[in-house]
């Protein structure tokens, strides 16, 4: 077994040669946030291109403020690119939709609905028959280990439980694409590993396309089929690494020598960018005054 093979790609990522068609394509994306009130504009992304093949599990890492969430919001349909194309199955994304499940950092559960009703929210909006989605909701809650809490309100759950509900809520719609923005960032390390293993277990039996944002290099390597590193703002792709650890994976790969080596490399790279971002912030680069 080769373990982790780090296929080094030039700093400006080309569309990867791959036999599978791109599920998600970012084509030369620029995203600028303009504040009329302050008369400033911030360039979050500048000419970024990235292709994500079907069934890829892409983990995106990079310094804080480099535009990771912005990228996810673009494919989520929550925001629009200043220029460039965001394509899903070759079609331009204009709005959010149930074909892209989203798990937000804070879970974003509906606080007035109990766990079961949160999970059933999607199928209800899609007008599915009650018997079918109820059965499925139970199965998914069983899978994430929350069936006994079906009638609890989000406020009565721990952070980890809430994230599991959020994942279940996104999965029940069977979205071909799953978008996750630092879903486990707020969890303690022990819970986080359990959640990662759960996510892998789920992913390994349906292999949907996943875009997963994290700050945690270890998490990225553990989960992803690919790890993409972004530069400090304005975000570009710096490095695109294929993470080919044996599957099914569990926590034991953390000690794998290749894993440790690549992890150290990626960590150094992100650190460099974080330092650059900090220097930028003090010089206020990237944010310019508009005339």
């Amino acid at each position: 077994m080769t373990g982790v093979v780090a296929a080094k790609v030039p700093a400006v990522t080309m569309p990867r040669s791959n036999d599978r068609p791109a599920k998600i394509s970012f084509r030369n994306i620029t995203k600028e946030f303009v504040s009329k009130a302050r008369g400033t504009s911030t360039k979050a992304l500048n000419g970024l291109s990235l292709d994500i093949a079907e069934k890829d599990f892409v983990c995106l890492i990079g310094p804080s403020g480099c535009g990771k969430s912005t990228l996810l919001n673009l494919i989520g349909g929550f925001e629009h690119a200043t220029s460039g194309d965001v394509l899903l199955d070759g079609v331009r994304v204009t709005a959010p939709g149930p074909d892209r499940g989203v798990v937000f950092q804070e879970g974003a559960l509906f606080p007035w609905l109990n766990v079961l009703d949160n999970v059933c929210f999607g199928p209800r909006r899609l007008g599915l028959p009650r018997e079918r989605y109820l059965e499925e909701a139970h199965a998914i809650l069983e899978e994430v280990g929350l069936l006994p809490f079906a009638r609890h309100l989000p406020a009565e759950l721990s952070g980890g439980m809430r994230q599991r509900v959020a994942i279940a809520r996104a999965l029940i719609n069977h979205p071909p694409v799953l978008l996750m923005d630092e879903p486990f960032a707020a969890l303690d390390p022990q819970t986080r590993v359990l959640m990662q293993e759960m996510l892998l277990r789920i992913w390994e039996h349906d292999n949907r396309t996943v875009l997963f944002i994290t700050h945690d290099v270890e998490e990225a390597l553990f989960l992803g089929t690919r790890v993409v590193v972004m530069s400090s703002r304005p975000g570009r792709i710096l490095k695109d690494v294929r993470a080919e650890l044996p599957r099914p994976r569990d926590f034991s790969v953390f000690g794998h020598p290749e894993f440790v080596k690549v992890k150290a490399e990626l960590f150094a790279l992100v650190r460099e960018q974080t330092i650059a971002a900090a220097a930028d912030a003090s010089g206020n680069a990237g944010t310019v005054r508009t005339p």
Binding site: G76, G77, F78, A95, P96, G97, P98, R100, G101, V102, F104, E106, A108, L109, F110, W112, L113, F121, G122, R125, L126, R169, A170, N173
Partner: peptide
């Protein structure tokens, strides 16, 4: 973020009012 969650789960702009905004 609740509006975003609602939309990405399949709520239409009109159903968003009764399913997310009012509650």
């Amino acid at each position: 973020v609740l509006l975003r969650a609602g939309r990405s789960l399949g709520a239409t702009e009109s159903s968003l009012l009764t399913t997310v905004i009012l509650p």
